[in-house]
Design a protein around this nucleic acid. Structure first.
Lengths: 187, 187
DNA sequence: TAGATCATGTAATTTGTTACATGATTCG
DNA sequence: CGAATCATGTAACAAATTACATGATCTA
């Protein structure tokens, strides 16, 4: 009966995977890095951390080194590590590509550290398959409806299609980057 | 003392701009069109419509034509039209490009019908300026931090950069499309 | 020592999600 | 007639936003 774990929760688990961090550290990451459109407001982060701790996925303990401000460092528990790995291992469906691409990229960003390179390559392969199948569907939709659409509407649609094409190219580049790396690492 | 109007509210105003529609119509639009990642759940749409009506931005009246199911058609009030135009006319800032690109595209999609082509061209020009300035910032960020990043992290960042480059190209294509159209229409 | 920043939290309000409830009408 | 779909809503709950509150420590 594990309760639902939101995208923010998973982002926090992913960030806590490699190294422990405080609520303030996590807020700064959301506020200053170009990726991740999570809110850095205390009213979002601290309750989320409290939820995760109540659910047994992380544990925080106050650090009181001399000359430092008191801060609560959180780290993953065994259950938290399992939940992170479960989320990262989820099979990817068409629906994810259509409307949850940001979540897929987030999973990708955490994946190498938590699951290793072979899992990343499998993930990228599945993503390439889905994108390759989806892009023509969008083109078909556009060419069917274009005549009946105002200029701005089909340009907005073209915007979406362009995004998916770029994502597909990126996906292929990423696969090459990982395969090259693998070969060099384990000849 | 106009109360806050959310993105969903604005999306509804934009859709009601050209033609009146029922809650069910709007739900279907969110459920079936490729763009717009709004929820089509009744628990989101109907309360939003009720809010907008309470705020005086739309007005609904029940349609009871013979042989048709009863449905409540909403249309913009004068205040609603003003609010839509105000939202569409907002100046665009760096911050919008960084983390609210979806809202900008939504505004673009509604803009021609509500404000006319010259406004669209001004909007696209401002967007091009912001994107042209922002892309190099991202490249600089990547080349500064790349050495210290794991492969997956810089690939995720590259994903983001690629998205913005595509958006910039799209923006320039859209400007050409609108300028070409304008010339042909009014020689 | 005053102001900035570090650091954690809470409260009120709004909003969205999920699930349920209800009834009319069309179609096979 | 029964099932699917049209059509509108509500209730319980979870979550985010905004604003406030508090206090320690660093720096000018």
């Amino acid at each position: 009966m594990t309760r639902a774990v939101s995208l923010l929760d998973h982002a926090l688990l992913g960030l806590l995977g490699p190294a422990p961090a405080s609520g303030y550290d996590l807020r700064k990451i959301f506020a200053t890095t170009p990726m991740g459109s999570f809110s850095d407001s205390p009213g979002a982060i601290y309750p989320a951390l409290a939820r995760l701790e109540a659910g047994g996925l992380i544990r925080g303990h106050v650090e009181e080194s001399a000359g430092l401000r008191r801060r609560k460092l959180y780290r993953l528990t065994a259950a938290g590590t399992m939940e992170l790995r479960r989320w990262l291992s989820l099979a990817l469906a068409r629906e994810d590509v259509v409307s949850r691409m940001d979540e897929l990229i987030l999973r990708f960003a955490f994946m190498e550290a938590a699951l290793g390179k072979p899992s990343v390559l499998k993930f990228l392969g599945a993503l390439e398959t889905e994108l390759t199948a989806y892009v023509p569907v969008l083109h078909a939709h556009l060419s069917t409806h274009r005549a009946a659409m105002p200029t701005s509407a089909w340009l907005a649609l073209e915007f979406g299609i362009g995004s998916y094409e770029t994502q597909l190219e990126w996906c292929r580049r990423a696969i090459r980057a990982y395969e090259g790396k693998k070969r060099r690492t384990k000849p």
